[in-house]
């Protein structure tokens, strides 16, 4: 078996494809001669950028608004795969990516390999790389199935890079009714207020954890972030506790960030947090416990109390 066509499950909105989607198209381009994309929704607005990153086609189902995407996307993908036989399908490790890949795996009875950060071709086979145990080891997995290789990738595993291609050709994909399994309907959407730079695109990220002691102390994090032109983030502990919204969570089940500077305040450095920020160029950690694992990855570690160090830092930055 060799890999000739890779189909990328593309996500995005009116403004175009997501950065993760463009990362996957770029990666696919280096592995296969032909890269095509599939949009569970209206892919017209994505055609320019997908093409510029190397995709030849955008298969588009048209709007699925009001539906929970996974089941519907999987039904349409199955029909597409049976007709077009791509060698591999790449998904982002997102909510819709996971739902779709899982439903598709059942429909076509093929395995999925998740949480990957790398891919290569070895002896004509797709081999994917997944970090385990908080990124201390990498597991390389080869597909041994007789259908398309279904692989999910974590954000920021590859660098998105345009190669100057023209707009991808938009092709209508058939919608397939999944029956009662597709019954879930979205009846309302609620968005939380957001301000400042986006967490996963910011050059500097300041995150707070349970060491802040109380929810009010998070205002220090926001203030410090403001002074540094940074985005503010959080450990899961304080998201679970309801101090800050989930959108701020960094880690395995939150965002993957790779800023120039990551400042961890009162965060212990659990493996699930580390996998989301270990790729940062520079890491500063403030923690009162000298044994905290976060110091193991920090370029500058301060053993101290966040309630002393951060206010002093804020004052020092203000007086500059």
């Amino acid at each position: 078996m060799s890999i000739e066509t890779i189909l990328v499950f593309a996500e995005g909105d009116e403004s175009g494809p997501s950065s993760l989607t463009l990362e996957l198209v770029t990666a696919a381009r280096s592995l296969a001669a032909n890269v095509e994309t599939f949009v569970a929704g209206d892919g017209t607005a994505m055609a320019d950028q997908l093409g510029a990153h190397g995709a030849s086609k955008v298969f588009s189902t048209g709007s699925l608004e009001g539906k929970l995407i996974g089941v519907h996307a999987a039904a349409a993908l199955q029909a597409h795969i049976e007709a077009n036989t791509p060698d591999a399908v790449f998904f982002g490790q997102t909510a819709d990516g996971r739902d779709t890949a899982a439903r598709l795996a059942v429909r076509i009875d093929q395995p999925v390999v998740t949480n990957n950060v790398g891919a290569s071709i070895e002896d004509g086979n797709l081999v994917v790389e997944e970090p385990v145990f908080g990124g201390t080891q990498n597991v390389f997995t080869a597909f041994r199935n007789d259908g398309p290789a279904l692989a999910l990738f974590r954000p920021k595993s590859f660098e998105a890079e345009a190669n100057g291609g023209g707009a991808a050709e938009v092709v209508r994909a058939d919608v397939v009714d999944p029956g009662t399994a597709g019954a879930a309907e979205v009846t309302g959407r609620h968005a939380e207020e957001r301000s400042g730079p986006q967490l996963d695109a910011a050059e500097v990220v300041v995150s707070g954890g349970r060491g802040l002691g109380q929810p009010e102390a998070y205002t220090m994090i926001d203030e410090l972030a403001g002074l540094l032109g940074a985005a503010s983030g959080a450990s899961r502990a304080i998201v679970d506790a309801g101090w800050v919204p989930y959108a701020k969570q960094v880690g395995q089940t939150g965002k993957v960030v790779k800023p120039n500077v990551y400042v961890a305040c009162g965060i212990s450095g659990a493996t699930q947090h580390l996998v989301g920020m270990k790729g940062s160029k520079n890491i500063i950690a403030i923690n009162k416990d000298p044994e905290a694992p976060i110091f193991g990855v920090a370029d500058l570690g301060i053993v101290g109390d966040v309630h002393k160090v951060i206010p002093a830092l804020i004052e020092a930055l203000k007086s500059r």
């Binding site: 970090p131 597991v139 597909f143 199935n145 007789d146």
Partner: peptide
């Protein structure tokens, strides 16, 4: 139908 071909230290 998937096989771990190797494990490396990061």
């Amino acid at each position: 139908r998937q096989e771990t071909v190797r494990v490396t230290d990061a």
